[in-house]
C-alpha cells in the first residue's frame, strides 16, 4: 500500500469521524452568533475581571477587593442584596405555586388573567417604582383605603425603606414566577394525578406526593430566575428604597461608583462580586435540585 492511498484513507476516516460527531458545514451557522457573544459578552467579562485587579490608583492588584471588604458600608451591600432578593424570590415562588395549582386546568378567563399578569413584567421595574412611589405614599390610595376602612389609624411608612423595594419586586416578580410555574405545572401529565386518585390519594396527598415532587425541579429554576431578577434591583432600590441605608444593594454600590468617580475598575470588582454571589446561590439551588427527580414529567412512555 502506498503512502498516498494511506493518507487518502486516513482523511476519509477523519471526515467520517467528524461527520459522526456532528461536525460539518452546518456548524458554520453558529459562528456569527458565537462571535457576537465572544466579543460582546465573554471578552468584556474577562476584560472587566482583569480590570478589577488593576485598581485606578495603581495600588496592589487586590486593592479594589480590599477596599470593598474593608469598608463596612460597602461590605454590607452584600447582606442588603441577599436580605431583599432571598425573601422576595421565596415569597414569589410560594405565592405562585397555589395559584398555579388552582389554574392548572383551563379556567374561564385564563388568558385574560395571564394577560393582566404580563403587564407588570413588560412595564418594567422603573414604571412600577414610579407608580408605587405615589400609590404607597402617606397620601396615596393604599394608605387612604386602609385608613378609610379603619384598619390603620396612621399611614404606613412604606417608602424609602425595605418594604417599598420588597413590594415593587413582588409586583414585577410574582407574575413572572406564576407564569413560569404555570407552564411547568401544565407540563405534568394530568394522568399522574388521575392515577394517584384512583389509588386512593385525596387532593392534598396528590399534591404532596405527585404534583410537588414533579414540580420541584421547575420550582428551582423559577426561584433562580426570580432571584436573578431581584438581584439587579437598583431602579426600585434607588427610587423606593433607602439607597444609602438598608437598600444599598450591590447594584446600587456598583452604579454609584461609576456615576460618582467613573472608577470602572472598582465597579467591575463589585459586579464580579455580585456575579459570584448570584452564581453561588444558583449552584446551591441546582445542587439541591439534583437530589430530586429531574426527568420527564409526562410519565410512562407517552
Amino acid at each position: 500500500m502506498s503512502a498516498k492511498t494511506q493518507s487518502r484513507e486516513f482523511s476519509s476516516t477523519r471526515r467520517f469521524w467528524l461527520k459522526e460527531h456532528g461536525i460539518d458545514s452546518t456548524l458554520l451557522l453558529i459562528v456569527p452568533a458565537l462571535l457576537a457573544m465572544l466579543v460582546f459578552f465573554v471578552y468584556p467579562t474577562v476584560y472587566g475581571t482583569i480590570l478589577s485587579f488593576h485598581p485606578a490608583n495603581k495600588a496592589g492588584f487586590l486593592e479594589n477587593y480590599k477596599t470593598f471588604f474593608g469598608d463596612p458600608y460597602m461590605r454590607k451591600s452584600i447582606f442588603n442584596t441577599f436580605r431583599i432578593a432571598l425573601p422576595v424570590s421565596l415569597v414569589n415562588v410560594c405565592l405562585a405555586v397555589p395559584v398555579a395549582v388552582k389554574m392548572r386546568h383551563r379556567v374561564k378567563g385564563q388568558r385574560a388573567i395571564n394577560t393582566i399578569l404580563i403587564i407588570p413584567i413588560s412595564l418594567g421595574t422603573v414604571l412600577i417604582a414610579e407608580g408605587l412611589y405615589a400609590y404607597l405614599s402617606p397620601n396615596g390610595w393604599f394608605n387612604r383605603t386602609l385608613m378609610a376602612a379603619h384598619i390603620i389609624h396612621a399611614p404606613l411608612q412604606m417608602l424609602h425603606n425595605f418594604w417599598g423595594v420588597m413590594i415593587s419586586l413582588i409586583i414585577s416578580g410574582f407574575p413572572f414566577a406564576f407564569l413560569l410555574t404555570l407552564s411547568y405545572i401544565s407540563g405534568i401529565n394530568p394522568k399522574m394525578e388521575e392515577a394517584a386518585s384512583i389509588l386512593g390519594a385525596g387532593p392534598i396527598q396528590r399534591f404532596r406526593f405527585v404534583t410537588l415532587p414533579l414540580l420541584a425541579p421547575g420550582l428551582a429554576i423559577t426561584f433562580c430566575l426570580n432571584f436573578v431578577l431581584a438581584f439587579s434591583v437598583f431602579p426600585s432600590a434607588n427610587l423606593l428604597g433607602n439607597p444609602s441605608g438598608d437598600s444599598h444593594v450591590l447594584a446600587v454600590a456598583a452604579t454609584d461608583v461609576i456615576s460618582q468617580s467613573y472608577d470602572y475598575s472598582m465597579a467591575s470588582a463589585i459586579s464580579l462580586i455580585t456575579a459570584v454571589c448570584e452564581i453561588t446561590v444558583v449552584v446551591l439551588v441546582f445542587a439541591i435540585r439534583s437530589r430530586f427527580y429531574t426527568g420527564s414529567t409526562t410519565g410512562g412512555k407517552g
Binding site: 452568533a33 472587566g48 433562580c224 436573578v228 455580585t274 456575579a275
Partner: peptide, 25 residues
C-alpha cells in the same frame, strides 16, 4: 456553546453590564 448563550440571560444584567459598558466606552 450553550452556556455561552445561557449566561447573559441567567446573570443579572448589572453584573456583565458594567464590564460591557467599560468595553463599549
Amino acid at each position: 456553546v450553550m452556556l455561552c448563550f445561557l449566561l447573559p440571560i441567567m446573570l443579572p444584567p448589572i453584573t456583565f453590564g458594567i464590564p460591557l459598558a467599560t468595553f463599549i466606552y
